[in-house]
């Protein structure tokens, strides 16, 4: 086996120093908060795992978890098929392809709170163009009807993030050698068969990336519901991150928020790990074979 020179790790040192100030020290602080009831910097009480019992048995948090989870599932069910469909009908070459790519990428480069504000006004029944037009046909008011609020947030997320899926799938489709399509044409394969047996297997890896990225991002969604509905109407769009910030900076219940953050952080860790594992699965298999 080749000897590995590990000295290059010293180049990572600046990053580790930066991260320790921006992430590790705050994490340690949050972990300390999570085991104490803090009234003031000098007046704090060690309470062990009480906040964790409180958090894991709190229906409010459990409901927010279910809400976040089902939101992520719905996001995936809409965005992945829609992304594939749009990527397949996009122009393959020439100026039209460039124009389509730029058009598709526009939502991705708009700041998140700008998107929130834009949609908030756009969907208003009184002064928003979209809300006004929809109210000609059906009753739509995202500030009073829980379902409408949910649909609006879902719609904003679809508008904002389907482009990411489209770009990934588009790149995946471009990387399929023309020979596959020619072979399919010679065999007289139908459009459906080409999609099912040529494109889908080749897109597997790219789709895996898209699914995991979209799942993680939508699971952590904060800005859009914060700006558009503020977690309402009622609790309809109170996702985990909204609830967490309410507890932490709204009620200043930092012990409870600390325990909540740690559990939330754990879930994100697990998802990130799955993400990383799937991405490197191929390389890992090769490493084993080489040994």
């Amino acid at each position: 086996m080749k000897t590995r020179n590990n000295k290059a790790w010293f180049l990572v040192l600046p990053v580790i120093l930066t991260v320790s100030f921006t992430a590790i020290l705050p994490l340690m602080t949050v972990a300390n908060y999570a085991v104490q009831d803090i009234f003031s910097p000098t007046d704090r009480l060690f309470i062990g795992m009480d906040w964790f019992y409180n958090i894991t048995n709190d229906p409010l948090i459990f409901n927010a978890f279910k809400r976040s989870f089902s939101f992520s599932i719905q996001v995936l069910l809409i965005q992945i098929p829609l992304g594939i469909a749009i990527a397949r009908i996009m122009p393959k070459s020439g100026w039209k392809a460039s124009a389509a790519l730029v058009m598709v990428a526009i939502p991705l480069i708009i700041p998140w709170n700008v998107i929130g504000t834009t949609w908030q006004i756009f969907a208003r029944p009184d002064i928003g163009l979209g809300g006004y037009l929809i109210n000609k046909f059906i009753d739509f008011n995202y500030t009073s009807d829980p379902l409408d609020g949910w649909i609006l947030i879902l719609l904003v997320d679809v508008w904002h993030w389907t482009p990411l899926v489209i770009l990934l799938v588009y790149a995946g489709l471009r990387s399929i050698p023309p020979a596959y399509y020619q072979a399919a044409a010679i065999d007289g394969a139908s459009q459906v068969a080409v999609f099912r047996f040529v494109e889908l297997p080749k897109l597997k890896r790219v789709l895996m990336i898209a699914i995991l990225l979209r799942f993680m991002d939508s699971f952590m969604i904060y800005t859009e519901p914060f700006v558009i509905t503020g977690g309402g109407p009622g609790e309809a769009t109170t996702f985990l991150s909204i609830l967490l910030s309410n507890i932490a900076v709204g009620q200043f219940d930092i012990g409870r928020a600390g325990a909540f953050s740690l559990i939330y952080f754990l879930f994100i860790q697990i998802l990130s790990f799955l993400f990383f594992t799937v991405l490197t699965l191929q390389e890992r298999a090769e490493v084993t074979k080489a040994k």
């Binding site: 020290l25 340690m28 602080t29 972990a31 300390n32 085991v35 104490q36 060690f46």
Partner: peptide, 15 residues
Amino acid sequence: LNWMAWTTPIAIVFT
């Protein structure tokens, strides 16, 4: 390090 509100158990964990 007062702002970090250290407690012994958490210090042991991170150490």
